[in-house]
């Protein structure tokens, strides 16, 4: 049976159906999880998709962190479950303390909506396990607050522990060390600003995102097999 990927929907999330379609193209089954549900329904992996959770009021991700589903997300992550936050989902994961640092407004206050050239910097994560380091991927970005910021010590730890998973080939938003995506200490929680679901078919201009989503589906399948 295809592994089940839960896709968390907050009020204002708008990429959930694209993510479901893309994880299904990558061999998984998608299942929407409403933000008020405290029960994840036995999914094998989770995606926090892009959009404007709770209207992005206060700061992107600041209010989503208090949604009932986040306790379940936290427990799932702690138990080693694969969790990927895309764009607004990345912002939610940093606000919730599941990933370090913060996403600030882009340098020069530019809203960016364009394909970005990315370089895979680490394969030690559920999202990049199936790609080689150095691989170039073209995946769209679409954000105003994607400028990854952290203190010098956190940056050193991310670098030393091989937790920077994706970098921009040309830094579009001022992120420190051109960071486009990072992982937690154990590699099962990943956040990235680019949208792999928008690069999941040649018809969309690129299917470079599929290799990342296939890694996630493989991690979900491994978890399902371990639980069975």
């Amino acid at each position: 049976m295809a592994p089940r990927i839960g896709v968390v929907v907050f009020p204002g999330t708008n990429c959930e159906h694209d993510v479901v379609a893309a994880v299904e193209a990558a061999g998984g089954t998608g299942a929407l999880v409403w933000h008020r549900d405290a029960d994840l329904g036995g999914v094998d992996a989770l995606v926090l998709p892009g959009g404007f959770a709770h209207g992005d009021y206060l700061r992107p991700g600041a209010l989503a962190r208090f949604s009932p589903v986040m306790e379940a997300v936290r427990a799932f992550a702690r138990a080693g479950g694969p969790v990927v936050g895309i764009c607004n989902g990345f912002q939610v994961l940093t606000e919730a303390g599941l990933l370090p640092g913060a996403l600030q407004k882009n340098g020069r206050l530019r809203f960016l909506c364009e394909p970005a050239r990315l370089v895979v910097a680490s394969t030690a994560s559920v999202l990049t396990a199936g790609v080689s380091t150095g691989t170039e991927l073209v995946i769209p970005i679409n954000h105003f607050s994607g400028n990854y910021t952290c203190d010098a010590e956190t940056l050193r730890r991310l670098q030393d522990e091989d937790r920077i998973v994706l970098r921009y080939a040309e830094n579009p938003n001022g992120s420190v060390d051109a960071i486009a995506g990072i992982a937690n200490e154990t590699g099962n929680v990943v956040g990235l600003m680019p949208h792999p679901e928008r690069a999941s078919s040649a018809l969309l201009g690129s299917d470079d995102g599929l290799v990342l989503l296939r890694s996630l589906v493989a991690a979900a399948a491994a978890r399902a097999a371990a639980a069975a």
Binding site: Q104, K105, G107, R108, L109, N147, T149, G174
Partner: peptide, 13 residues
């Protein structure tokens, strides 16, 4: 306010 040392694109603009 942003901490000192954190870039403030809004203030700079």
């Amino acid at each position: 306010q942003l901490r000192p040392g954190i870039a403030d694109p809004e203030g700079a603009t």
